[in-house]
């Protein structure tokens, strides 16, 4: 390997490392190839286009959930946040019109930041904190909507945009790509990004090096919440009706997407591109199983087995001392 390449990918020193680094991508390609083999029709632009449209809400959740995981934390509340914000948007639109969307995004950022801050202040594990807020958000969503579906009012420009297409590409997917690029740049070229990785590698050492851990945790959870809210709105733009439980089931697939890409649940290792690949893998498995006509229950079994295989292949065990 040339020195320049070696500098770009310092962790790659052998063929094994290379394989592991490309593992998630290889898994994705294998799954994709299998799907094409089963149903060549999937290669049509229209089909891919439709897939991307469907995939957008899950992908944005996967991307958002990655940041807490990079810290070694976990955000269980993301899916509930997606439902909650979809409900709130639908309720606010009659009052505020299009402004409801940015309003809710800002609110989500605030709630997420508060969550992250409280984890540090109360010193309770993120697993517990977000389990609590998972209940809180879903309860509030039920309460605020009075447990009903709420129809979205007409002419909400940001949601119309998310539901539409530009040059035939779904805008929702373009939004995912935009968020992905923005956050990737943030992680790679800013102090926030460096601090996030430092925090994930060793929280205590980072803290002792002057990293403001409460701030960084707040940032990561705020981003996660905003992405979740955005995911909820993408869903809303597809259905035009909000329901208090509409995104609740995205919790597991989102987590699966994060880890299937090779991001270590213990923090500090991985990134957004990995998550994007992992998220696409999770979706392709579902699509492949559907097209192959597997019964639903068997799909779950297949999904579980593929997660095990993917994670077994992609986990870089040398960087994780003790596996918990």
């Amino acid at each position: 390997m040339t020195p320049a390449l070696a500098r770009m990918f310092p962790s790659i020193r052998s063929v094994g490392d290379l394989l592991r680094a490309c593992g998630p991508a290889i898994v994705l390609l294998l799954v994709f190839a299998t799907v094409i083999w089963i149903a060549p029709g999937i290669l049509k632009w229209r089909a891919i286009n439709a897939l991307l449209f469907d995939a957008a809400p899950l992908l944005i959740l996967v991307i958002g959930s990655t940041l807490p995981v990079l810290l070694g934390c976990i955000d269980l509340s993301a899916a509930a946040m997606a439902s909650f914000s979809a409900v709130v948007v639908a309720l606010l639109v009659p009052e505020f019109g299009s402004a409801a969307v940015p309003l809710v995004l800002v609110g989500a950022a605030g709630i997420g930041a508060a969550q992250g801050w409280l984890i540090g202040r109360l010193q309770i594990p993120s697993f517990v904190m977000t389990l609590g807020t998972l209940g809180l958000f879903s309860g509030l969503a039920l309460y605020l909507s009075n447990a009903s579906t709420v129809a979205l009012g007409p002419e909400v420009a940001p949601l119309d945009f998310l539901g539409g297409r530009t040059h035939g590409v779904p805008n929702a997917f373009l939004a995912v790509v935009a968020v992905w690029i923005f956050l990737s740049l943030l992680l790679r070229f800013t102090r926030v990004g460096r601090d996030i990785y430092a925090f994930g590698a060793s929280e205590l050492a980072a803290y002792m090096s002057g990293v403001r851990r409460d701030l960084i945790r707040s940032c990561a959870f705020a981003i996660s919440s905003v992405c979740a809210a955005l995911g909820g709105m993408m869903l809303l733009s597809q259905t035009l009706y909000s329901a208090p439980t509409m995104a609740s089931n995205l919790l597991l697939p989102a987590l699966v997407g994060v880890v299937a890409g090779g991001t270590a649940i213990s923090g500090g290792v991985g990134g957004l591109s990995a998550s994007l690949i992992g998220g696409l893998t999770a979706i392709m498995v579902r699509v492949g199983a559907t097209i192959a006509g597997l019964p639903g229950a068997a799909q779950d079994v297949a999904f579980g087995i593929i997660i095990l295989v993917a994670v077994a292949v992609t986990t870089d065990r040398t960087k994780i001392g003790i596996v918990k």
Partner: peptide, 19 residues
């Protein structure tokens, strides 16, 4: 089957129509 997860049915319908 969706296990009452609308998203799952969306993806399944998407996959069928996509083909």
């Amino acid at each position: 089957e969706s296990g009452f997860d609308g998203q799952k049915h969306m993806q399944q319908l998407g996959a069928i129509l996509a083909a």
